[in-house]
Amino acid sequence: MLVVFSLTTGEFVVAGILPEVAGALLVPVSAAGQLVTAYALGMIVGGPVVTVATARLPRRAVLLGLVAVAVLANLGSALAPGYSVLLATRFAAGLVVATFFAVAVTTAVALAPAGKAASTIAQIALGMNLGLILGTPLGTWIGQQLGWRATFAVVAACALAALGAVLLFVTELPSATAGSALRELRVLGDRRVLLAIALTALGNVGVLMVFTYITPLLTEVAGFAAAAAPVLLLVYGAGAVVGNQLGGRAADRALLPALTGLLTCLSAALAIFGIVDGNHWLAVLLVFVLGVLAFAIIPGMQARVITAAAAAPTLAVAINASGFQLAAALAGRSGGWIIGAGPGPRALPLIGAAVTLAAAGLAGLMLYRDSRSPRVGAATRP
């Protein structure tokens, strides 16, 4: 949980310190937003590549190596002399994240007492929620008070503490697979897996556009002072905790119907957020609602990918994380263009709403395809 907290904070805190990074490195805010894209690209590349490359290694050694890379990469970000080096270190930090999530889940389940697998996974997932609700606002505040380099230094320190915890408490376990690691890549040829990854990517692009540039949106569009950003990120994180629980329960009952409905609601919330102009109370409410809906869709998306790729569970979790980061990369890139060279920040939530509505259509199509295939439909219902 501590490792996941560190990695999640390192990923999302950039959204809170974009103005500080841009000002210190003398680059536009849209360019600073590409740091999110670089981290996401690292996860996209690292997810399948690092997972396959380390599949035959002992899991404790893999976990220690992955966390060590995260420590060094975040420390490198804190010490980066310029924008290009900072981009490179964010890419390096992202390389290990998807594989860590995948190996951590399978390792925790293997170490858990009988009947405690689900609660153990929930404890790991709590680290992501805490990274949003505590780590990101705290890191934003540190960046505003002590400079953005201090934010990455604190993330590196948290990851270092987590490295010690892994060293002390994770016992030695054999590799995740005894056969050829390349066999797991065959899962990528399954159409259901590809559709599930596409849904994860498309369904998160719109809300990640808004989250990546939420600080300038709140200050330039909604009219908040910059000092309010950490508090509003805390509100978003509180919504994320609620949404994670609600989304999991909804997906347990009816996976694809729940995803279709939640994505439709998320599209509507983004559209309303796009027309907020100076109404602070409504903006705060919408920030909370966006946090709820953005994380309510994640459990169902992960469950869909794991179900579709049952023959390669470790790689499936990594692929799901890569799909999410593909969305983050597209969000950072396209959102930066919309703000810098396109129609401007006011259009960002409206465009995000349109993309999310398209994802709801894809979820509806997958639901229709499953209804036409009773065997598949039954398999996707937990």
Rank of each mutant, 00 (worst) to 15 (best):
L194G: 09
A268F: 05
Y236L: 14
L218Q: 09
L208F: 15
L266V: 12
T215H: 12
V276C: 09
V287G: 12
A250M: 08
F295A: 02
I297K: 00
G247C: 02
G203A: 12
L270H: 10
L259W: 06
S267T: 05
L270N: 06
L194K: 13
T212V: 15
M209L: 14
I197F: 14
I275K: 04
L218H: 13
A238G: 10
P230N: 08
V276E: 13
L232S: 10
I297V: 14
V210K: 08
V276Q: 13
M209P: 06
F288W: 04
A229L: 14
A240N: 04
T212K: 15
G223A: 11
G300N: 04
A294L: 09
D252Q: 03
A198F: 13
G223I: 07
I214C: 14
G261D: 03
G237F: 00
L270E: 12
L285T: 04
I298N: 03
N244I: 02
V289A: 09
Y236M: 12
F224Y: 11
V231D: 07
V287F: 08
R192V: 00
C265F: 10
A296Y: 03
V305R: 00
V284D: 01
V241N: 04
V276S: 09
V305G: 03
I272E: 12
A303N: 08
V305M: 11
G248N: 07
G206K: 09
A303G: 05
L232K: 12
G247S: 01
L232M: 06
M301G: 05
A296D: 02
N244Y: 02
Q245Y: 11
G243V: 03
G248D: 06
A198T: 14
G300I: 05
V292N: 01
G291F: 00
I197D: 12
N279I: 12
A201K: 02
A294R: 08
L256T: 00
G274I: 12
T200E: 00
G206P: 08
G248I: 04
D252K: 08
L217M: 13
V231W: 14
A227F: 13
F224A: 15
T307S: 11
R304M: 09
L262S: 02
I298C: 00
A240G: 06
L293I: 06
T260W: 04
I272V: 15
A271G: 10
Y236S: 10
L293E: 02
V305C: 07
W281V: 13
L286R: 10
L285N: 05
G261F: 03
A198G: 06
V231H: 15
V287D: 07
L202G: 03
I298H: 00
V292H: 01
V231S: 08
A296K: 01
G248H: 07
A226G: 10
L263E: 09
I297P: 02
A254K: 07
I197W: 09
E220A: 14
N244V: 03
R192P: 01
F295I: 02
F288I: 05
M301F: 00
I298T: 11
A225D: 15
L195A: 11
I197V: 15
G237H: 04
